[in-house]
Amino acid sequence: MPTSPRPARAGSVRVAAWQRQHLGDADRRRIMEAARRLERRSHQPGLHGGCLRRTGIIVLWMLLYRGPSRHGVCDPSIGQLAEWAGCARSTVQLALSRIEAAGIMGHVRRGLVVAGRWCQWTSAYLFASPEQWAVSDTEARSAEVSLVKKKLRKEGGGGEGSALPAAERQALAAKWGLLEPASA
């Protein structure tokens, strides 16, 4: 007698095999130690923390130690992470973006189509080994760069119609790695 596939329970989400990641205690410790080293290395005098900041370290710990299920799927909600970490949802979202920018983890948006419209249901978080992490650019958070970026936004995005002189615009683009520096 052929067996029919069981219908999915309401509220359950199918998880692909590539969205599962079994991390042992040694892997978790290695990721956390590398994240703390990155935080110390990227700290600049006068700034509040390094590239991850305190909340980034806390949220990363929560994801590594409280997030994964027994099946290897790490998909806690933003609200659950905020509750665990004892901070606001917006703080968790900023911390997650800093963690992703450092290359420590990535996330997969998972959703459902409801009435012809795609709605995000949850996110799955996948961790990279410390050898694969992106080199952190803490200069992007410095006060000088933030002021210039804010000025560019106010004046129309910093394109060709920008009020900044072309030489200064080119120097900033080279500094941020957007183009090769001009050879003298």
Results as ranks from 00 to 15, higher is better:
Pro5Trp: 02
Pro7His: 07
Ala8Pro: 04
Arg9Asn: 07
Arg9Gly: 10
Ala10Ile: 13
Gly11Ala: 08
Ala16Phe: 13
Ala17Asp: 13
Gln21Asn: 10
His22Asn: 08
Gly24Asn: 12
Asp25Ile: 11
Arg28Asn: 02
Glu33Trp: 00
Arg36Gln: 13
Leu38His: 03
Leu38Asp: 03
Leu38Gln: 07
Arg41Trp: 07
Arg41Cys: 05
Leu47Ser: 10
Cys51Ser: 14
Cys51His: 10
Leu52Lys: 07
Arg54Met: 05
Thr55Ser: 12
Thr55Glu: 12
Gly56Asn: 04
Gly56Ala: 03
Ile57Asn: 01
Leu60Arg: 01
Leu60His: 00
Leu64Gln: 09
Arg66Asn: 06
Arg66Gln: 12
Arg66Ser: 09
Pro68Ala: 08
Ser69Thr: 15
Arg70Thr: 13
His71Gln: 14
His71Ala: 15
Gly72Lys: 12
Gly72Gln: 10
Cys74Asn: 11
Pro76Cys: 09
Ile78Lys: 11
Gly79Glu: 12
Ala82Gly: 08
Glu83Val: 03
Trp84Glu: 05
Arg89Cys: 04
Val92Phe: 06
Gln93Glu: 15
Gln93Pro: 01
Leu94Trp: 06
Leu96Trp: 02
Ser97Asn: 12
Ser97Thr: 14
Arg98Tyr: 02
Ile99Asp: 04
Ile99Ala: 10
Glu100Val: 14
Glu100Lys: 11
Ala102Ser: 09
Ile104Gly: 08
Met105Ala: 15
Gly106Pro: 02
Arg109Gly: 07
Arg109Thr: 12
Arg110Ala: 06
Gly111Trp: 03
Val113His: 07
Val113Arg: 11
Val114Pro: 05
Ala115Ser: 13
Gln120Phe: 01
Ala124Thr: 15
Phe127Val: 06
Ser129Phe: 00
Ser129Arg: 13
Pro130Arg: 02
Glu131Asp: 15
Gln132Trp: 01
Gln132Ile: 11
Ser136Trp: 04
Ser136Thr: 14
Ser136Cys: 14
Asp137Pro: 03
Thr138Ser: 08
Glu139Val: 13
Ala140Pro: 10
Ala143Trp: 02
Lys150Gly: 15
Lys151Ile: 09
Lys151Leu: 15
Arg153Lys: 13
Lys154Gln: 10
Gly156Trp: 00
Gly158Thr: 07
Gly159Gln: 01
Gly159Thr: 03
Gly161Ile: 04
Pro165Cys: 07
Ala167Lys: 13
Arg169Gln: 05
Ala171Ile: 03
Leu172Phe: 15
Ala173Arg: 13
Leu178His: 08
Ser183His: 08
Ser183Trp: 04
Ala184Thr: 14
